[in-house]
Write a protein that binds this DNA or RNA. Structure first.
Lengths: 217, 217
DNA sequence: TCAATAGTGTCTCTTAGACAATATTGA
DNA sequence: TCAATATTGTCTAAGAGACACTATTGA
């Protein structure tokens, strides 16, 4: 039987931005194999509980973060006999985005076992082939940002254009021109000003923005 | 056991261009379920034979076409309890491209059971959720062509720019401007002229081109 | 010569990037 | 006033689309 029915898991790269750097959620494995290694959060498909693989991913995530995630998208499938010591396996890779003002919801869980890691840190060991998975996830996210402008799901509901630009820069890993960025954003229909809402400080106040009501990622 | 190990298949949208229209390979199912329905070619993962899912896809394809396929890429995964009457299943969807001068290699196989269908024909019934899969595959292919210019894998080794343009138009489903198209192609590094090779006819001879030696899709 | 297709040139419009200039606050 | 950041404007270059023009063949 097992010859026709391989092990199927979903692994999730949950991203957020901390201190102007893109971060990804890592968990310390509580089970064999590779007990105590750091890895992307993942879990085994349960056909009796999960209607689809997306459900598996959501179930895994909510067990780690307890919050609803803003965006969840399938990126790739990796497969083979060597990637997991338990044998021939398939992993369906997802990425998800967590707004920076909800990061605390993750940390409340089980302090030692969860950690935000710098997404561009290459030297960190991870279990299985999760280094490869993380690389795929970062690339997918970058493509999304280049194309559609909008890491809105990583920000609080209201934010300034400077914050949005810093978030984009964190994801892309390179600086962006202020003028060009603002022009591109404003031509889009996806953002709107929050009337009369400003952030004050020792400088000119910054207009707050929010996603338009009909916004889709 | 079956609760943790769902049925895993790969399905493949194999594209070619016939008469300036994008076509996809369809097979008449020789087994239950849905015996005699038309479907995308697909097959069950055999972990003992296939090193990865890509191998599954290649195995399925070679059993239908007997030729090496120029390009094979994973597009998406669909899953759930309802899509296959045998129960909870996962399908990993691929697309592949067949050069138009190799189409004959497919037709030699088992004449009644294989057919090239117009990829944009919406009214045709297909087994399982393969209408959806085909739509996903066409969209993925379109994105590729828009981004990277290059359906070279659908053409013979040597071809004219007009042929390339017609192929692009077939995939995108809309006409392209000749001037803009040629400019874009020539700025790219991916094509080179075949010195002294022309196609003759009752009009001005057309320069033949080929992919540069370092070409990647 | 004509029909047919190959190939080039040119105009306009949009967009991105670079970079400068101006605006508005708290201290 | 000054430092700091927000916001706008301007110049230039690249690229896409539209469209017209020239080129070269077989019949």
């Amino acid at each position: 039987m097992k010859e026709l029915y391989p092990l199927v898991t979903t692994d999730i790269a949950l991203f957020t931005v901390l201190g102007d750097r893109l971060h990804v959620l890592l968990v310390k494995r509580a089970n064999d194999p590779l007990l105590n290694s750091w890895a992307l959060p993942g879990g085994i498909l349960h056909p009796d509980r999960d209607r689809t693989l997306d459900d598996t991913a959501l179930r895994v995530l909510s067990s780690k973060t307890r919050v609803d995630v803003r965006h969840l998208e399938q990126i790739a499938v990796v497969s083979g006999a060597e990637r997991d010591p338990r044998g021939w396996s398939i992993s369906v890779l997802y990425y998800a985005l967590l707004a920076s003002d909800r990061v605390h919801a993750v940390q409340g869980e089980s302090v030692d076992a969860v950690q935000w890691g710098d997404a561009y840190d290459r030297g960190r060991p991870l279990a299985f082939d999760h280094i490869l998975l993380l690389e795929k996830a970062v690339n997918a996210l970058r493509r999304k940002v280049e194309q559609y402008t909008l890491p809105l799901h990583l920000l609080p509901e209201r934010f300034t254009l400077s914050e949005l630009q810093k978030t984009c820069e964190a994801i892309l890993g390179r600086p962006l021109d202020k003028g060009a960025f603002r022009r591109r954003i404003k031509d889009d229909e996806t953002l709107e000003e929050v009337p009369g809402a400003f952030v004050r400080g020792p400088q000119r106040p910054a207009q707050l923005y929010r996603a338009s009501s009909d916004f889709r990622f």
